[in-house]
Design a protein around this nucleic acid. Structure first.
Lengths: 262, 262
DNA sequence: CGCTACCTTGAGCGCCCTCAACTAAAGTGG
DNA sequence: CCACTTTAGTTGAGGGCGCTCAAGGTAGCG
């Protein structure tokens, strides 16, 4: 699992913050998160925490870079840390013995994953692009949470949001058609991009068609056909395979919600 | 939404604990939960809490009965309370405009649902059987959690477990065949029954075929066919439509995990 | 005993998967 | 810089699993 110094390429984080003991809390660069580890700003887990809490947090976390295709942890590994993404994209998936794969979630800048109190990870996490993550040791985060309600509360909020996402995704997988799934997926990416302050429409897909397929329960071919058809119909623009421009958001939304779109 | 006195039928809770102010903390019947509201014992949310926390909890919660088909809350309702099931079964689901339904989860004795911090419920909750629930007002639970880390911690644990379940269910919906889905579903019910201290095999299905179908992304007919075939093959016994006896758990498990069970 | 709701069983069809070929883009070595 | 290789995406033809539609069976209930 290579961890070369690709950091500067995707985070702008200086090399001296790559590992735990190296971070310097005193040096808070402009635009940085409260703890000085990252540049997540309001997206940061620790945003708005009391100074004392932040400094306690600072001592337990560290920023780590991964390259594309690196595995952060595997299903069944002891769950020792929670991750917060500073830059890049991560997919988490489960495998069946015969190789069938289900990507249960994608995570982007500002997202957290890896919660599994006192147990093992329920899924494997793999970097899609070069990734910078803030790593929070579970046990020590837990200890801190017991003295700082704001930390525990933040965790609960993150998990609540994730649970709501899962309800939506279960609806998608259980009851939507291929076309509806692709439309829903693209709109979901768009929403999440906007929610982290990025434009919602010229959209860059960090994941390939195979990853999309394994996330929304289809095959590569079906995903490809659906997107091509959306393009033919003028709902999307696809300047390249990984570039998506949403031309008719409302029409796409109607399809995603089940309109019998031709 | 009828709330007649069906309580005695399914909980054994005396009538005077049906609503919040009526419960008497001093009178803890043998076999009761720590707060005296229910008989969940170790399954109770408040099991193991400090006496002071329990008495604070006691003041915010109340036990409420529902009849089968009653709606506890609807998708979009303001999320004012969390529910803990004392007896009976509940289904939660999302609807699409055209009527397609996805049951995202079933809940049984000891389970909690309805978490949605400061927002609206993401799904509708409906009683399958007569149900007794312990109702915990969200805001006051939250206030309590800020002073008692054990409460917050318990919430996080419940949510973590639920998240893991969702990962499994997403795998089921995204990548498993009809046969595998039904096998997985039945084994899941069996596991959960055992985990709350009930026998894992002569299993009583509180939900109908239609509910099962809407949970695992199939149609009634396909569920029925799969179960009939399991019976023909000697993996199950179906003395009645709602009674399931698992004859060959290992074979069933193999199928659930993707063995090419002819 | 008849009504109703639920479950089962059967026949045929359709959406999506499978298999396969082709195209495009990105990396590689001479 | 360009031929070669590799990987990813697209497009087409055909088949199968699960859905649809329909009928028959069965259990609970007035």
């Amino acid at each position: 699992m290579a961890r070369s110094s690709v950091t500067a390429l995707h985070t702008g984080t200086p090399a001296d913050t790559d590992t735990c003991p190296a971070a310097r809390p005193g040096v808070r660069a402009p635009g940085r998160g409260p703890c000085g580890h990252c540049d997540l700003g309001p997206l940061a887990f620790c945003d708005g925490f009391a100074p004392r809490t932040v400094s306690n947090l600072w001592r337990v976390q560290c920023t780590v870079p991964f390259e594309a295709h690196d595995t952060l942890f595997r299903e069944g590994d002891p769950g020792v840390a929670v991750y917060s993404i500073v830059s890049g994209a991560v997919k988490v998936y489960k495998l069946m013995p015969d190789g069938r794969r289900q990507i249960t979630a994608f995570f982007f800048r500002g997202d957290m994953f890896g919660f599994c109190l006192g147990g093992s990870y329920a899924y494997t996490a793999e970097a899609i692009t070069p990734v910078g993550v803030c790593r929070l040791p579970m046990q020590r985060l837990n200890d801190l949470a017991n003295t700082a309600p704001e930390v525990q509360d933040r965790i609960v909020r993150r998990m609540t949001a994730k649970l709501a996402q899962f309800h939506d995704h279960v609806l998608l997988l259980g009851r939507k058609t291929a076309r509806e799934r692709v439309a829903t997926f693209l709109l979901g990416l768009s929403d999440r991009a906007r929610r982290r302050g990025e434009p919602g429409s010229p959209l860059t897909l960090p994941m390939g068609r195979a990853d999309i397929a394994d996330h929304i329960g289809l095959t590569v071919e079906t995903v490809s056909r659906a997107m091509t058809r959306f393009k033919r119909e003028g709902l999307l623009d696809l300047p390249s395979a990984s570039q998506v421009s949403i031309r008719q958001p409302d029409a796409l939304r109607a399809i995603a919600e089940g309109a019998t779109g031709g």
